[in-house]
């Protein structure tokens, strides 16, 4: 079994190289010169700009720049053009924020989605089932930023029960989970909202399919109580497709973080990625994009593993 997983991990390495090359090429082709962003629009002469470019390592041959960039990410010698912080440290600071919101969002979405889906599946075509399907389609049609603005308007600016910005009380630093709870409510809700809808839809189908499966009928035939049947047989069988859908939506979290973090003022990965892209801060763009790719690959791996637990046949394949 471990050989299987090792193989899976090994497969992802060429993928990472390809992703990093692609990002590197895009950045090279981009017009605009990052050195101009470090100086005032007043006047540096051409020689001074050349010096600046050199100080950023932009005058080296491209392959050298590429290799240095890749190595630099890992050993921390690659630094942001602007803040001069090691990019890996910036990522390290931002990751807990994104991970907290993302994982809580995914957790809330999974709980809510599975519960709703299982509930609706009990009576296919019934009122609840139909209401759910309308709710699902509506939920995935609302833009994240609209939902965020709406919630902020109501809870932060109107009722003033939740903070309007940040991951912790303004002016504090470090990690204090209790103090951060109010700050997490809205971002987690917004993150969970569309995911819950999708998971609900797939859970409903999965539970429904499991319900009509033969061994469930057999179990019912044996006279087991419906509750026991649901727990023991139906949910277990429905788990495989549910795990797969959770795995599929996980990468979406990262994309969603871009908007959620911007609007809610969270210092997370999505936020630094956008800021860096807009400022041509190549090292940071490179690092965050590669990180995102790693995360997607990792999410796929985790899904596979979870899949293996839910359905032992997969591991044997």
């Amino acid at each position: 079994m471990s050989r299987y997983w090792l193989g899976r991990v090994a497969q992802s390495i060429p993928m990472l190289v390809a992703v990093s090359l692609a990002v590197f090429v895009v950045l090279q082709l981009a017009p605009g010169d990052p050195s101009t962003l470090l100086a005032d629009p007043a006047y540096l002469d051409d020689r001074q700009r050349a010096e600046l470019r050199a100080s950023l390592g932009l005058d080296e041959p491209l392959p050298v720049q590429y290799v240095r960039t890749m190595g630099g990410i890992l050993d921390g010698s690659l630094r942001s053009f602007r803040t001069k912080e090691p990019t890996i440290a910036m990522l390290g600071d931002a990751l807990p924020v994104t991970a907290t919101v993302g994982l809580l969002g995914l957790g809330v979405a999974t709980l809510a989605g599975v519960a709703l889906g299982a509930y609706a599946a009990r009576q296919p075509g019934g009122r609840i089932d139909r209401a759910l399907s309308i709710a699902v389609v509506s939920a995935i049609s609302i833009p994240t930023f609209v939902l965020s603005l709406l919630l902020l308007r109501v809870f932060a600016e109107g009722l003033r029960v939740l903070p309007a910005t940040g991951i912790r009380p303004i002016g504090s630093s470090g990690i204090d989970p209790i103090a951060s709870i109010p700050h997490l409510v809205l971002p987690v809700l917004v993150t969970a909202f569309p995911l819950a809808a999708i998971i609900a839809r797939y859970s409903r189908d999965a539970v429904r399919e499991a319900l009509v499966a033969e061994h469930v009928r057999t179990a019912e035939g044996k006279g087991l109580r419906p509750g026991t049947v649901q727990r023991r047989h139906v949910l277990r069988n429905a788990l495989v497709p549910i795990v797969s859908v959770v795995g599929t939506v996980a990468p979406l979290l990262l994309g969603g973080s871009v908007i959620v973090e911007s609007i809610f003022g969270l210092p997370g990965v999505g936020r630094i990625a956008v800021a860096a892209a807009l400022q041509r801060d190549f090292p940071v763009v490179m690092t965050t994009t590669l990180f995102a790719a790693v995360l997607v690959i990792f999410a796929n791996l985790v899904t596979d593993i979870a899949y293996g637990y839910a359905d032992p046949r997969i591991r044997l394949r």
């Binding site: 993928m15 895009v26 041509r280 994009t289 790719a293």
Partner: peptide
Amino acid sequence: MVFPTFFLIILVVASF
């Protein structure tokens, strides 16, 4: 698929 779509879009749009 592995490419973080939204990040890529941001990268390209911010560059070009």
